[in-house]
Design a protein around this nucleic acid. Structure first.
Lengths: 321, 321
DNA sequence: CGATAACATGTTATCCGTAACAAGGCATGG
DNA sequence: CCATGCCTTGTTACGGATAACATGTTATCG
């Protein structure tokens, strides 16, 4: 007990005993056991960030924002990958409940509110990141995907493109859906017909991008522009286009969501909707921490952060037929 | 106790009771408490990976290898950033001991063996990754940096370069030192004088790269080739060169350690020594797991993995003066 | 049929830190 | 001088899961 008091600077301790305890700690190399402490305190000072793939620089950057904000408040963060699978996500969440994390930042693998409900049932505060979940009251931080897609599509339309292939993510993921919605709105507003055959759904991965690009190239009239719903899709699609002998932007234009940090540094190429990944992570963590400490934060919050539309070399006018 | 037996499938349980317990678990939404379990068992099923910066794709890829290997055996992994600081590293290690992790994979921030000794004192198995630590018996997995640097330098020499700037990492980090050593060996072997003024040490970051490139450009006779000790340095240096109006490889050549995944996919550019990051993570984790389970693994192991020297567009012959 | 083993379930103690309470020592003040 | 209260230290109980042991039940076998 006395040792506990010395370590936590709680209660009153005479200077002499404190020094004696500190000396003993140093001599024995004693390190307190967090497990026992957390067990007793019913708090682990640990939070979790669940994303689909920590390998994606968007999530890596976001993770860094999360971690920096957490560390500032003395919290630790566990990172989990779901690989965009609802099953894996469910397993991860169970594991997190078992660990009794104090809170979770979730980039949901699908729009279902069930995972959020599961955590709430276990009294674990959640903040949903980057994506929406079906109507359910929960704190969340994201960008406006619909608007971003709308603006990016407008940009392509203004360049004269009329056949724009939309290479989107899994239809279960809100960002994929919203980006398609923004794309549709821009086309409709411009008085153009939305061609269902030009809208593709696939994995948020280079492979997904390749497959969708291949399918798009197989259309009777080749699209003049490609809109990738994320960086990985863009990469895969770009490779596919190159292999098909097409040059970007001379033959086809490409635009995408999400920056590709290193790429940008070497040679800025892709026209993108750049989402503030680091800030998203930071903000989400701050929201979560507020829930954890300041109990009276009231209703749930929905933070929509601004994005940047950055025009680079990958987009250009429609080539003369 | 009966519940414990059901959950862990240990001991004998009648079918009827098991079903009753399982029903109750489902109904109550009971989730066992890992903290209590770990406390009692003196094992957390948790390992840690300590790297300098999880934002660097080399470490991200490595982390993925670590995690995949760990998950396969039912272990969880905590990721820690040290930002290349020995102080932060020390803090992280204390935190890991407090958490009673079962083992640690360490990319040491410096060559000192103290951190390794610290973990050993607390009976926590360690595997050192990517870098060497001063003579101390410890399992480790890495590539041969000296050899990689030697070969890369040879390549530049064979292209006719004689003034090659070496932009290395912090002098406290073994990879930075070894890469300089390989560079020196290649020059010496070629009968060339090693010019101290062409060897730079800086942070393994874009900023570090910029600064070193700037210093190198300030030399009375400009180097015709730049050897960056890692991907981040290469990025920074490349930007600096471009801003100085130099083209790569027409005006100067550049070569570096470590791939830049997305970059490569879009447009392979840098000539690199590509280390098998994913495999390094995997192997290190396997080694660690072997230590944890199979107690009699004997002496410590030192795994040196092969690298690939990939020649791309960033290197070329010396421009005509 | 009684002894022994095999199976099924319950009890107790333990891991380690901390909340809550208890107790001894000392000073202040009426 | 004793009551009150602060300061300091110690004691007990608890968080939740599990090892080790104990108990009760049923099957097996000479």
């Amino acid at each position: 007990m006395t040792v506990s008091r010395v370590i936590n600077r709680s209660g009153a301790i005479s200077r002499e005993t404190r020094e004696r305890v500190e000396a003993a700690i140093a001599e024995l190399g004693y390190v307190p056991n967090t497990l026992a402490r957390s067990l007793r305190m019913k708090a682990t000072q640990t939070l979790a960030l669940v994303v689909s793939d920590i390998t994606n620089p968007f999530f890596t950057t976001l993770a860094r924002g999360v971690q920096d904000a957490a560390r500032a408040e003395g919290f630790n963060v566990i990172f989990c990958n779901t690989d965009e699978s609802e099953t894996e996500q469910a397993e991860q969440l169970v594991a997190l409940v078992q660990k009794r994390v104090d809170g979770v930042l979730l980039v949901p693998a699908a729009s279902s509110a069930e995972p959020v409900a599961y955590l709430k049932r276990h009294k674990i505060p959640v903040v949903v990141l980057d994506r929406r979940v079906e109507d359910c009251l929960v704190d969340s931080v994201r960008c406006d995907s619909e608007l971003g897609a709308y603006q990016l599509t407008r940009l392509l339309l203004d360049l004269g493109h009329r056949r724009i292939a939309m290479l989107s993510g899994p239809a279960t993921v809100s960002t994929a859906v919203d980006r398609v919605a923004g794309y549709r709105r821009a086309l409709t507003e411009a008085g153009l017909e939305v061609v269902a055959g030009l809208i593709f759904h696939g994995a948020y991965s280079p492979i997904g991008g390749r497959q969708m690009a291949q399918a798009a190239l197989a259309c009777t009239r080749r699209p003049t522009a490609f809109f990738a719903a994320n960086n990985f899709i863009a990469i895969g699609a770009y490779q596919q286009l190159r292999e098909a002998g097409l040059r970007v932007p001379e033959d086809v234009s490409m635009a995408t969501f999400d920056e590709m940090p290193l790429t940008t540094l070497i040679e800025p190429f892709f026209t993108v909707v750049a989402q503030p990944a680091y800030e998203m992570g930071q903000r989400a963590m701050q929201l979560l921490l507020a829930r954890l400490t300041n109990t009276a934060v009231g209703e749930c919050q929905e933070v929509i952060l601004p994005f940047d539309l950055i025009v680079r070399r990958s987009t250009g006018p429609v080539p003369a037929a």
